[in-house]
């Protein structure tokens, strides 16, 4: 048994033994060793400083080792020679550097990735045998200029991506719209109406309307429907205070339209979006509620003969806002 383990380790060692002490395999081993010690430390004691220090050392060794290992790896693509090494090393460096602030500034590691990678790729051009510092020749300087400009543009693309994410964070209802016409963005996810916060607003409005009308007498209901504008405006204020306060809240408004005749009324609740959208005038989501009168079973003497009952339909798809004026005009 012991012999077998010994043989296994001998084989393992002969397979992975660094060819020289000063080589990238040594660095990878050092990083594994550091992580192992860090793990051991976390099991045996909980000195956080030592543990973090060892993990950091492991990460640095890994980055250096990977950078060294990939120094000569290259492949051809469309007549260009691409060295993936600096990009991977840069990615490791950025992950390591910005690990602590990833939740606060998720963009930072992405935006700095091309710049750090370009800096890593530039280092060998400034070194000559020795190693000593040298100024690269004219050809090398031209390559460096293009390399840095390309990496600046790449990090601008990442910044642009995160700027769009910021906008979507402030105005999440944009996601419910279609991006087919856009010259800038694509949406890889399927479009869902439920991404629009109009859905949330309408569901809350439905609850409020049911709360206010269900079980009321016909007279009370008709009074409510007569004052529908101010009642719906009250509900709107309440809802906008209740839902999480985002920049887009000012762009939403709630409207109520009453149609039908006694005893059966129809109340159309509309969440109107006046922000950016693929519809020229904006769009609205609609929820139709039917208010009917139900006779009261074994009613007490004082109560009315019938009470209101509210039943609402599911929410519609996005409807362009200009049709509202068209339907009102006709």
């Amino acid at each position: 048994m012991l012999d077998a383990i010994k043989r296994f380790f001998q084989q393992f060692w002969s397979q992975f033994k660094p060819p020289r002490w000063f080589s990238w395999q040594t660095l990878i081993f050092l990083s594994l060793f550091s992580w192992g010690m860090s793990l051991l430390n976390s099991v045996l004691s909980d000195t956080e400083f030592v543990q973090d220090f060892l993990a950091t050392m492991g990460w640095i060794f890994l980055t250096l080792g990977v950078g060294w290992a990939l120094a000569d790896v290259k492949f051809e693509f469309l007549g260009l020679t691409i060295y993936p090494g600096p990009w991977i090393t840069g990615a490791l460096t950025c992950t390591f550097l910005f690990e602590g602030v990833r939740d606060e500034f998720p963009a930072l590691s992405f935006v700095s990735w091309p710049l750090i990678s370009a800096a890593i790729a530039a280092v060998p051009k400034f070194l000559k045998r020795g190693p000593e510092f040298k100024v690269p020749d004219a050809k090398g300087r031209q390559e460096l200029v293009i390399l840095f400009l390309v990496s600046i543009i790449l990090s601008c693309w990442f910044s642009f991506h995160f700027l769009l994410q910021d906008w979507l964070g402030d105005y999440p209802s944009i996601l419910a719209d279609r991006f087919d016409r856009s010259a800038f963005v694509i949406n890889t996810a399927r479009r869902r109406v439920s991404d629009s916060r109009g859905v949330l607003i309408l569901n809350l409005a439905e609850t409020a309307v049911i709360e206010q009308l269900e079980g009321r007498s016909l007279a009370e209901t008709e009074l409510w429907l007569f004052n529908v504008e101010s009642r719906v405006a009250d509900i709107e204020t309440q809802i906008l205070q209740r839902i999480s306060s985002l920049e887009e809240n000012v762009l939403w408004s709630l409207e109520g339209l009453v149609s039908g005749d006694a005893p059966r009324y129809r109340l159309d609740l509309r969440a109107v979006w006046q922000g950016p959208s693929s519809y020229l005038e904006g769009y609205f989501l609609q929820k139709s509620c039917f208010i009917t009168q139900q006779p009261v079973q074994n009613r007490p003497a004082a109560s009315p003969p019938t009470v209101s009952q509210v039943a609402c339909e599911p929410i519609s798809d996005l409807l362009p806002l200009d049709s509202i004026t068209a339907s009102q005009g006709s």
Partner: peptide, 14 residues
């Protein structure tokens, strides 16, 4: 977070 990406802008810029 990565469902909306400015890939068309990048393609046009290239």
């Amino acid at each position: 977070m990565f469902s909306v990406m400015p890939l068309r802008a990048i393609a046009f810029q290239c």
